[in-house]
Simulated assay, not measured.
Amino acid sequence: MFLLKKTVITWCLISGLMMLPYGSFAATVDGNQAKEKNSPEVMTVDIILVRPLGLVATLCGSVIFLVSSPFSAMGGNTQEAWDVLVAEPAEFTFKRPLGHFEDEK
């Protein structure tokens, strides 16, 4: 009985995760949609997949910045390294509105 429950839960998770990209793809293909209103599918993909990946990118960028900071200081481009490795991923992860992927600049 336990094996049957485990199999059903596994298949539900697999099929649910396989359907996530389709909702976001359909929302991004429609160019006539209003920019202020995002679909729930895009927001769901953003909160479940993109934000955690942005957090990982920010943390990895911070580690890479710490390792490369002596070399950046010798080259005189510490601020540029900080912006590219830490500030941009952090801004993408924490300051961007939920579901907005367009570059506002």
Results as ranks from 00 to 15, higher is better:
residue 60 C to T: 08
residue 2 F to K: 15
residue 97 P to K: 07
residue 44 T to I: 06
residue 26 A to Q: 09
residue 69 S to E: 04
residue 45 V to I: 12
residue 14 I to K: 03
residue 94 F to M: 04
residue 26 A to N: 06
residue 25 F to M: 13
residue 4 L to A: 07
residue 37 K to Q: 11
residue 7 T to P: 08
residue 3 L to E: 08
residue 62 S to A: 15
residue 35 K to I: 04
residue 26 A to G: 01
residue 5 K to Y: 13
residue 88 E to Y: 09
residue 58 T to F: 13
residue 14 I to M: 10
residue 45 V to L: 14
residue 28 T to P: 00
residue 103 D to P: 00
residue 60 C to M: 14
residue 51 R to I: 03
residue 61 G to N: 06
residue 101 F to P: 02
residue 53 L to C: 10
residue 8 V to Y: 07
residue 66 L to D: 09
residue 16 G to S: 13
residue 94 F to S: 02
residue 42 V to S: 06
residue 48 I to F: 15
residue 68 S to W: 08
residue 90 A to E: 00
residue 26 A to P: 00
residue 9 I to P: 08
residue 79 Q to K: 15
residue 55 L to E: 13
residue 23 G to Y: 06
residue 22 Y to T: 08
residue 91 E to Y: 03
residue 16 G to I: 04
residue 4 L to Q: 10
residue 94 F to I: 02
residue 74 M to N: 14
residue 82 W to Y: 05
residue 14 I to V: 15
residue 42 V to P: 00
residue 45 V to Q: 04
residue 38 N to P: 00
residue 79 Q to R: 15
residue 47 I to E: 10
residue 79 Q to Y: 03
residue 46 D to H: 12
residue 53 L to A: 15
residue 20 L to K: 05
residue 32 N to W: 03
residue 55 L to W: 13
residue 6 K to D: 02
residue 73 A to C: 07
